[in-house]
Amino acid sequence: MDPAEQQYWLDQVAYLVDELDPVPAGLVERAQFAVAIEDIDAEVELEAALWLDQRSLVGVRGGGPGTITFFVGDLTVMVNVTRTGECHRIDGWLVPAGEHGVEVRVADHETSSTTADEGGRFVLTEVPRGTTQILIRMNGGRPRTVVTPTVVL
């Protein structure tokens, strides 16, 4: 391939990078929100959880209700989101169970928080809609905070 042709194909890759597969709209803002966590204790390990099964999430990401699951290490968190008027009700279940602190951060709103019961269940009502991140502050044993990526609920 001569240099001109190399440049042509490199330009095609540049087009692909910029136009066909650009950074998704709002990702920068969501990432900025995700790291703007208050009360981060340097002594407490911070772990980023993952949403399980991206494909079933499409509806949730699009703002509809549904069940979502996220996990990190041995911890699995199932969350059921129900629309209640302008807000959401969030029913969650931590496995393994533990009386851990649960916080739901929504951009431009107060953080909602609660504590899971001994069976690992928690409920938060009147959670505002918007860019949302869930934090689980795990007590007992090695203290750690699990944070989820933000999603638009």
């Binding site: 990432a31 966590i37 911070l46 980023a48 949403w51 933000t150």
Partner: peptide, 21 residues
Amino acid sequence: DHGTAEDVVQSVWLALLRHLE
């Protein structure tokens, strides 16, 4: 895929927050 890459981008920035020091 798109959705997982979005989550990874956020995990990487959280990792930076953890490793700032």
